[in-house]
Design a protein around this nucleic acid. Structure first.
Lengths: 344, 344
DNA sequence: CGGCGAGGCCCCGGTCCCTTT
DNA sequence: CAAAGGGACCGGGGCCTCGCC
């Protein structure tokens, strides 16, 4: 009750000035100690540190970043429902911290638009924004890029001034096709991603790969989507098709999980009767359907590349496109084609 | 090039002062216009707004919150891998916004400890922290609560001064048991959550419920865990048990998904041979295993209660425990017991 | 007298109270 | 009294100065 002002007890957190008063030194000195920079004697340093710890002092990142010319803050938008985004965010934290940057994350969800998420980041004065799997159209991306340097992850960018980091989607699907063909499969199907980011490239990659193997006439692309439900529906339709495929390349792991679930449910043996390959190597791939064969995008590598690209943009580097090589992770949902398949 | 100082072109974002200079007014007036508060004529308001829009002005939330006595910021920690946390975060955004608060979210993941996530929130000077499914022990919670008001979601708190919002876990499992018993099931199994938050209560609820129905001797609790893998393993063990159960109550939806996957894979008919009930009603419940019967915690309601509780704590209210009533969502993984079951 | 430890002071970008026209 | 301006201030950071051994 030393203060006549009616401030709520316990609410106020100690500031540099509070610590300085308590320790009997200036705020500048406390600042020096808290930052661990030269300018204080060891004895003073220890004493001030002890006082700060005792008071539970935590520095105000807001005030600190306000004063500094550079906020050293990277904004990230991600989709709360996408498991792969979760993997990416986790590694983005690590990659940013390793370079002395903080992360401000802003979620996208059915009731929270991507624009809203980006506006929130702009108000936080992040120096660059990293958008995971953005669904914004080129016009919006272009106008956003004029307000803040922009880097897209897991999506290609046709937009001027926008960097991007994504895996070689067409090539990745090609790896899946190569793998299946080498196992003896001939009748291949691609359950596509409809209008999801990357779906075009994966469709194209599938078409190119089957052509390369001279299997175009036996191959098929069926409409799917990015969710388990889409995969299930597509698989159901395939079961009633005249010539049942012997191998399926799904748009992503979620889609593949839907395909797998329906096949297992219909007592189709995987990989005995049908092989299935997913895309992403998200946590789903090693989940309940344990050991899904899939194309891995390597979240850690992608996150590193994203932070590198973002900081390069900040340093005045030209926007650029980084294409990562995906690789095949053959687990237990893909196997040799059955005998009948080999006959045709 | 009006400034001789070598600042990087295009990097600097306009400030209030820039807008004021451009519009030929004071910063105070621009502030009034940007906040939409009384104190400016309509004509001036329109003119200043136009200038600000033209310059692409976005206010600096950091500076604003620094000046304001209250930061109106709620910190949230959540697990990137938990689908249910994603649902909660989405609704927390909405609930906080409805009360004029911002959210600062900080993720927890295998390589990012809960302590690290909380420290980040403290540096952002959030006024209260909402922890989703915290795994911190009581001692750490108690010491954290001394630095910032704390509210736990989806976990009970024994700690003094900490509020909590969670569903009635024991009661919820009771609902599942009642449902299954009413369908004629007698040999019930609970695949538990090991040491996950809430697992104790759900075990207890199961034991109480089967006792209430006089089925203790035929009931069983087997070790499980919070992941699909745990569910799968437990289900596998059950298939080799002497008396196969006719119904399973899983710790959560992920665990139930694992159980379901293994059963389907082993060609056990669900719900013909075995009924399965999950817990959470997360996105998984309506995912690939379409239409899982489960106990719903209603993320929207929980989020509302969490924000209410957090703000109440801020207003000086006493810490309190809010227990929400879970409810049964009977979908297609639970059905009548088979004939053999009814005989014993 | 040189160098190190420490303090004074303004600044970052808004907000808000008070004063002026 | 409404509209607009002036200036202190929130919590730290960084430059410059000063005292002292």
């Amino acid at each position: 009750m030393t203060q006549p002002g009616g401030r709520r007890a316990g609410t106020a957190r100690p500031t540099l000035a509070d610590v300085a008063r308590e320790a009997g030194v200036s705020t500048a000195l406390v600042s020096i100690v808290m930052r661990g920079v030269p300018g204080a004697s060891d004895a003073t340093r220890a004493r001030v540190q002890a006082v700060a710890d005792g008071m539970g002092y935590v520095r105000d990142e807001r005030a600190r970043k306000l004063r500094q010319s550079s906020s050293r803050l990277i904004g990230v938008t991600f989709d709360l429902q996408q498991a792969f985004h979760g993997d990416l965010v986790e590694h983005l934290y690590g990659a940013a911290a390793a370079r002395g940057y903080d992360l401000a994350i802003s979620a996208v969800a059915p009731t929270r638009d991507e624009d809203v998420a980006i506006q929130a980041l702009l108000r936080e004065r992040c120096e660059v924004a990293v958008l995971l799997g953005s669904a914004l159209d080129d016009a919006v991306l272009a106008s956003t890029a004029q307000r803040v340097p922009l880097l897209l992850v897991a999506r290609r960018s046709e937009v001027d001034g926008v960097s991007s980091v994504h895996s070689d989607d067409a090539g990745g699907v090609g790896l899946a096709v190569d793998h299946l063909v080498s196992l003896g499969h001939r009748r291949l199907v691609h359950v596509d991603g409809a209008d999801a980011p990357g779906a075009d490239d994966r469709r194209r990659g599938f078409a190119l790969a089957v052509e390369r193997h001279g299997l175009t006439s036996q191959a098929q692309i069926v409409p799917g989507g990015p969710t388990e439900h889409d995969g299930s529906r597509a698989a159901e339709a395939l079961l009633y098709a005249p010539a049942r495929p012997s191998a399926v390349v799904a748009f992503n792991d979620r889609c593949a999980a839907g395909v797998l679930d329906l096949l297992v449910r219909r007592q189709v043996d995987v990989p005995g009767d049908v092989s299935v390959v997913g895309y992403d190597d998200s946590r789903l791939a090693v989940g309940p359907h344990a050991q899904m064969s899939t194309i891995s995008q390597n979240a850690a590598e992608m996150a590193e590349a994203a932070i590198d690209g973002a900081l390069d943009l900040l340093d005045g580097g030209d926007p650029r496109e980084v294409v990562l090589a995906p690789h095949l992770v053959a687990r237990s949902t893909s196997g040799p084609a059955s005998g009948t398949e080999l006959l045709d």
